[in-house]
Computed example of a mutant assay.
Amino acid sequence: MHAFYGGFLHIKTSLIQFVHEFDNVLGNNEQKELEDDGADSKGVLHTILEEGDCIVKVLSKEGDMYSLIVGEQKLIFDKPVVDTYRVFFDSVIRECQCECNLFQSKAILYCRMLCTFAYFKVNEVPTCLFSSQWSKNVRWKHTYIKSCHDVNSSNESNNFYKGLYSHFFNIAQDFVRNIKEASILHSVMDGTQTTLHDHCASKDQSSVPSQQSNKTPETQCSISVDRLLGPP
């Protein structure tokens, strides 16, 4: 909550101010989402160079679980310092966990995990370590909440689109965890798409005669200048 409302609310904010600022928070987050999406679509992730500063040493092994010590070399005030961390690695599911728990809190792969993978010759990051919050396709659910910032640009079809997009996102997020579930969803969506194409085709055919009978000369058509609006 502090991260979401940061910079907009304070301890003396009244209820009326809260409602007003809540709307501003939504508008700010919507704008930031658009900017981040634009940057992510063109950006390239930088290579992590700190992996070479880590030294891995195996302490013990119990079954498929390895216990390791990873020393990370750092420069503090131009003096080399080595911080050691206890790391556990499962060789079957290829899951890595460090005692610092940075991955659990920030969901970012850091150098100690990467150098552990390199030590055991794991060339691909396991899917269990993929975090959806860092995906370029992620959409935070607060962006679906309607605010006054998008009233002017909203219309009936736009509202339909938002509702359907939210519905599709929730289904994919809740049920697509393996190939079978993804195949079922693709099959259902393909069938729905075919049904909609047939519906639109029959609708267009039925509307052709009425459009021809109601057609007016071009000279009688008029456009209201007041209705021509600039893009949002």
Rank of each mutant, 00 (worst) to 15 (best):
H197I: 15
D83G: 01
H46T: 05
A118K: 14
E35Y: 04
S157E: 04
A118W: 04
G52K: 07
F120E: 05
Q97V: 15
C100F: 02
V92K: 14
P209D: 11
T47R: 11
S183D: 13
C96P: 00
F168W: 08
G52W: 03
E21F: 00
G230C: 02
T143I: 14
F103D: 02
S187L: 08
P231L: 12
L109C: 09
G71N: 03
V82D: 09
V81W: 03
G38R: 09
F117D: 01
I184S: 03
G52C: 05
L49H: 13
D36W: 09
D204A: 11
V44I: 11
G7Q: 04
Y165Q: 12
G191E: 13
V176R: 01
E35D: 08
E33P: 01
F22M: 04
R86Q: 10
L68K: 00
T216P: 00
N214E: 13
V56Q: 01
I48D: 14
Q211K: 13
Y119S: 02
F77C: 03
C221Y: 11
D53P: 01
Q17M: 04
N123L: 09
I16P: 00
V81I: 14
T13I: 01
T13F: 01
E156N: 10
G52I: 04
V125Q: 04
V25L: 05
W134D: 06
S157K: 03
Y5H: 02
D198Q: 06
H149E: 03
K106L: 10
F130Y: 15
P232V: 09
N159W: 05
N214D: 13
N29I: 14
L45Q: 11
Q220D: 13
E156G: 05
G191Y: 11
P217E: 12
V188Q: 10
K141T: 09
K146P: 00
F88A: 10
N155Y: 09
T192Q: 13
I93A: 09
P217C: 09
M189V: 15
Q73S: 10
D37R: 12
R86Y: 08
L26H: 02
S154R: 07
Q205L: 14
V81Y: 08
E95F: 11
I145D: 02
Q211L: 15
V70L: 05
T116K: 02
S131W: 06
N159L: 15
L9I: 08
L129F: 12
Y165D: 15
R94Y: 05
E33T: 15
T47E: 12
L109N: 07
L114M: 15
L102W: 04
V208L: 05
Q73H: 05
F168D: 04
